[in-house]
């Protein structure tokens, strides 16, 4: 039995998310008294692959077939399940991000393996295998028992602390396989990518604006504060619906679900649907004119007042600290 973890790469590089996954897998392996094997698909050099060893992977299976450069859910699930069987994996860990959500359910059917999705803690119990899982958009948590022999867990991003394992040795195995092109059915026609912007799902700090910002023209102190803090910017649903801010900034139940260390909600009242997207943040700051706004119930720090007056003062205060 081993714990298998799928580590996605971005142009040949791993990021914090990858190391969180390996740290989590190591935690599970420790509970089960076994070791961690990481699977990487795509062109990643050995120096980068070895970084996974720092978080407890003892073996890395590297698949470098060029035909797998596009995420084809079917092909990826097939490769990972083949490796899982070869490695005799009892638990498979995948991120709960876009790629993970595409791959995990397909793996589940292939391996007849039950899935605990969006976990943020180590399993509560190994026998019966029980995980702690977010349900009802964060309004309830479930103890979910996975009854199948193989278990798949998808880990919520930013929810598990990195844990380095100094002195861990790790070997790399190149895994070659033939990919039948007839099976690759996803053809990419166009890619639009923003560069140089901190991704909302990766960010440690997020500054977010709501209807209380009053107009799309009022955003500059908010974006300035975000850039001073090295934060990503976000917004509430009404703001993206109005077209004040791009849709990919919408956080909330139907938008992005995030868990930064710090979430600063400016002029956001905190409707249930909004809280569903941000309630896993470690610290929430609320700035709102309405002292009864529900956001203050979710927040650890609050300022009751006008964002337009408060934001410039916060900008000055951060500048003064630098």
């Amino acid at each position: 039995m081993s714990v298998l973890v799928y580590t996605e790469n971005w142009d040949g590089k791993f990021k914090k998310l990858s190391f969180e996954l390996v740290s989590y897998a190591s935690g599970v392996a420790k509970m089960a008294g076994t070791s961690v094997t990481a699977v990487s698909i795509g062109k990643v050099d050995d120096t980068e692959l070895k970084k996974l060893g720092n978080y407890g992977a003892s073996k890395i299976v590297a698949v470098t077939n060029e035909k797998l450069s596009t995420l084809d859910n079917q092909a990826y699930a097939s490769v990972i399940s083949e490796i899982a069987l070869k490695e005799n994996s009892g638990v498979i860990i995948i991120s709960n991000n876009n790629a993970g959500k595409a791959i995990a359910p397909r793996l589940s059917v292939r391996l007849k393996a039950g899935v605990g999705s969006g976990v943020s803690r180590l399993p509560l119990n190994l026998n019966p295998f029980t995980v702690y899982k977010r349900t009802y958009s964060g309004n309830a948590f479930a103890h979910l028992v996975i009854k199948s022999d193989i278990k798949i867990l998808t880990l919520a991003q930013n929810s598990f602390d990195l844990a380095e394992t100094p002195g861990n040795s790790c070997m790399i195995e190149n895994f070659s396989l033939t990919v039948d092109e007839a099976h690759l059915k996803t053809v990419v026609k166009d890619v639009q990518k923003q560069t140089g912007k901190i991704l909302l799902t990766d960010a440690d700090i997020v500054v977010s604006g709501g209807r209380g910002m009053k107009s799309p023209d009022n955003w500059s102190p908010l974006t300035e504060l975000a850039s001073l803090l090295g934060a990503a910017t976000a917004c509430s649903r009404p703001v993206s619906d109005e077209g004040w801010r791009p849709h990919d900034e919408h956080t909330g139940q139907t938008g992005k679900i995030i868990a930064p260390n710090l979430y600063i909600a400016v002029g956001i009242s905190g409707a249930t649907q909004h809280l569903a997207g941000i309630s896993s943040s470690k610290y929430i700051v609320a700035i709102n004119t309405d002292k009864d706004a529900p956001i203050f119930e979710a927040a650890q720090y609050g300022i009751v007042g006008d964002a337009m007056k408060i934001l410039p003062k916060l900008v000055e205060a951060v500048k003064a600290k630098k």
């Binding site: 964060g138 103890h143 309630s279 609050g302 007056k309 205060a317």
Partner: peptide, 28 residues
């Protein structure tokens, strides 16, 4: 393949600490 055995409510958050609107620097 899976079964929920028990539900629980999320842990309550600590009460909000308010900062004077005249002195937002204290928040930082």
């Amino acid at each position: 393949l899976t079964q929920v055995v028990v539900f629980e409510k999320p842990a309550p958050r600590a009460a909000c600490k308010y900062i004077d609107a005249e002195n937002p620097a204290q928040l930082i």
